[in-house]
Structures are given as C-alpha cells and as structure tokens.
Design a protein around this nucleic acid. Structure first.
Lengths: 128, 128
DNA sequence: GACGTATATTCCCGGTTCTGCATATTCCAT
DNA sequence: ATGGAATATGCAGAACCGGGAATATACGTC
C-alpha cells in the first residue's frame, strides 16, 4: 500500500542525520564526501541515508565525473516544499544545525570542486 | 540521549494513524471512543497511539468523568506549532483526511457528550 | 587493462517500534 | 462492594531501522 506523500516526507525528516543532510543541501549541492566530512559519517552511513532520501524524492543526484552531486529537487512535491520552508525557520535555533552551517561556510573542497563551483553559481564544467 | 524537539514531532507525524488523530484534534477535542470510531481502530491501538503522542507533548488529555478527552496542547512547542500550521494546508488535498473531516461533521456522540459540548464552546459541565 | 578514488549494495546484527492479547485501573451507578 | 463502561498497561512476537564489514560498481589516470 502506497503511503501518503506527506508521511513519506516525515519519515525522511525524522532522523537527525537525514535532517542535517537536507538542511545542508538547502544551502548548496554537495557531494557525498563533503557530507561525510561535515557530518562525521562513515562512507556507508552517508551513502545509505542519501539513498534513502533519494528513493523518496527528497534529494536528487547526478554524477559528475567520479562524484555524485546531491541536491534538493528543482521541483519538489508540495508536501516537501512546505517542509523545506518550515525547516529554514525551525532549524536556525538549534545548535547542531547552526554548527553545520558554520562548518559549511569554511568548507575547503578537498576532494571535489563541484560543490564550490555550484555554490558560486559557476557552470559545472571542468577546470572551474 | 535526548532527541531534538523537531525530530520528536516528525516521529509523531510519520504514522498515518497518528497524523489522522492530530488532524481530527485540530478540529475539536475528542474522547478515545470517538477517535476509535472515526478511524476504525481497536481500543488498544487508539489508546496506545494517544499515549505515544501524549508522552511527546503533541496531545494533552484530561479526564472527564469516565472519559479521557484528548486535545492539542494550548501551548504547543514552536516546532509543533509550525507543523500544525503546515498540516492545515497540506492535508486538505488528501482524500483520507477529507474523509475523516466529513465523518467528524456527522459525528453523533453516542458515548460521550463532552466533545460535542467542547466543539460548541459550551462549558464542560455535566447535563450539558 | 591495472590501479586508485568515490560511491553503492548486500548481508548481518542489535535496538527500537508496532500490534494483539490479556489484564489492570478508573470512574460511575446501583 | 459490586458490576459495567471507558481507558491504560504489561508482555511477547513481528516488523522495521540504522550501523558495520565486506564486496561491487563506476569513473579517471596511467
């Protein structure tokens, strides 16, 4: 039996790791190793949570060379859209999420330059 | 380890039964047997989901004679408050929830007159 | 085609959650 | 105090979830 889309969204957001991922992706598209690094996750943990979110339409992924770049969907479902708006207001008061933001600002893209390029709105082509 | 209040709220809402309960309580305080009836739940299922929500501050209960009247908290946490606002906009489009509303309108309080009294803003005293 | 890096998938385990059944508790009327 | 209606709780099994280890796949470089 198919679940209501709203419930699916709630399932995605009811885990702290996933919530932090979504929150970070609200700022910028990021590759797996960035998320791994920012959130202190093992490779498996990061990959699995991303797969979970992806399967449910909360994030999208596209491959760029050897990196998978994750981002929020350009056309989110109405239910997701609502929640994303809520998050921006809710999460700013929680230390964990403020801290994630702070670390994101300082991020030196060691492994993959794509995220930085995207954050600066430069086209995603090689050699920056 | 203590969970973030937002995540607690998401946990409460990521189950269809609980979501329907919260949705109904947005309309009016209700006793257990009403919810049982409206949602087609067994007594145990209704009681347990309500206990779940109550423990996490999403609903409140007070006894009135032999009935437990459940309602949304007068002073919800900011996180819950946000979600309750969202729900009003999100749920109206889903058939399950529209249907619950329809049945609520028609509700004949067979077991307990309290909910009806409350819905009509009459004081909760005996003999109506 | 061999290798290294980045990522995904599979299998397994411990912990949590959900459900049903039986039982307990609370309140009210007699 | 006894019985009935409404509700809660304890327990046991099923289902689900998240994490780790090992393995597989995809891409780029040489």
């Amino acid at each position: 039996m198919k679940k209501s889309p709203l419930i699916t969204v709630y399932h995605c957001l009811c885990d702290e790791t996933r919530l932090r991922i979504v929150h970070l992706l609200q700022q910028a598209p990021l590759c797996v190793c960035h998320l791994q690094d920012l959130l202190g996750l093992t490779q498996v943990a990061a990959s699995k949570q991303l797969a979970y979110l992806r399967k449910r339409g909360v994030v999208e992924a596209r491959r760029h060379e050897q990196w998978m770049i994750y981002s929020l969907p350009q056309a989110p479902s109405p239910e997701l859209d609502w929640q994303l708006r809520c998050l921006q207001d809710c999460l700013t008061t929680h230390p964990v999420f403020r801290n994630d933001l702070r670390r994101l600002k300082k991020l030196q893209p060691a492994c993959c330059w794509a995220a930085k390029a995207i954050r600066q709105d430069r086209p995603l082509t090689k050699k920056n």
